[in-house]
């Protein structure tokens, strides 16, 4: 079970990203969101939404085992253990492990569902 997206419905508004940063960092800042929106304009003119599939590639490549998986199959990065080598960021097949200058450790989707609750276009769901 993971966060899914129908990119064809996305209008690029980023409410999902602000809801994400508020829920997970207590900060209003889409630059600290855990899902990605890539606009492709003017041509072809679509938004591409990228979400974490909880595939575990990040955990496999982590040299210090800082990305445990919980009983529900959700991977999360332990910032205490993380050595900020960025191996997971580079290895992620979806490009959805993020960094921000405020934070040493990268961060990723923990399937909290806050983005789903705030999307007006019904782009996102968990399945």
């Amino acid at each position: 079970m993971h966060l899914r997206a129908d990119s064809s419905k996305c209008c690029g508004c980023r409410a999902c990203q602000v809801a994400c940063s508020l829920a997970n960092f207590g900060e209003n800042n889409p630059k600290k969101a855990r899902l990605a929106i890539h606009p492709h304009f003017p041509d072809p003119g679509v938004f591409e939404v990228r979400t974490c599939t909880q595939c575990g590639t990040c955990a496999e490549v982590c040299p210090v085992d800082a990305i445990p998986v919980d009983k529900k199959g959700v991977y999360d990065i332990d910032p205490e253990k993380c050595i900020a080598c960025m191996a997971c960021v580079e290895a992620c097949p979806e490009g959805v492990i993020f960094v921000h200058p405020d934070r040493e450790a990268p961060f990723k989707c923990i399937r909290c569902g806050q983005c789903v609750a705030h999307c007006g276009m019904s782009v996102l769901w968990i399945e």
Binding site: S8, K9, C11, G12, C13, R14, A15, V18, F41, P42, D43, P44, G45, V46, F47, C119, G120, M121
Partner: peptide, 26 residues
């Protein structure tokens, strides 16, 4: 119209991205 295009945080985007085939522009 090919894509809905919203302003920041908008659940009801007025913005519509269009492909005008007759003139070959977006």
């Amino acid at each position: 119209v090919i894509t809905d295009k919203g302003c920041f945080g908008c659940p009801s985007p007025c913005g519509k991205w269009s492909h005008v085939k007759k003139y070959g522009v977006r």
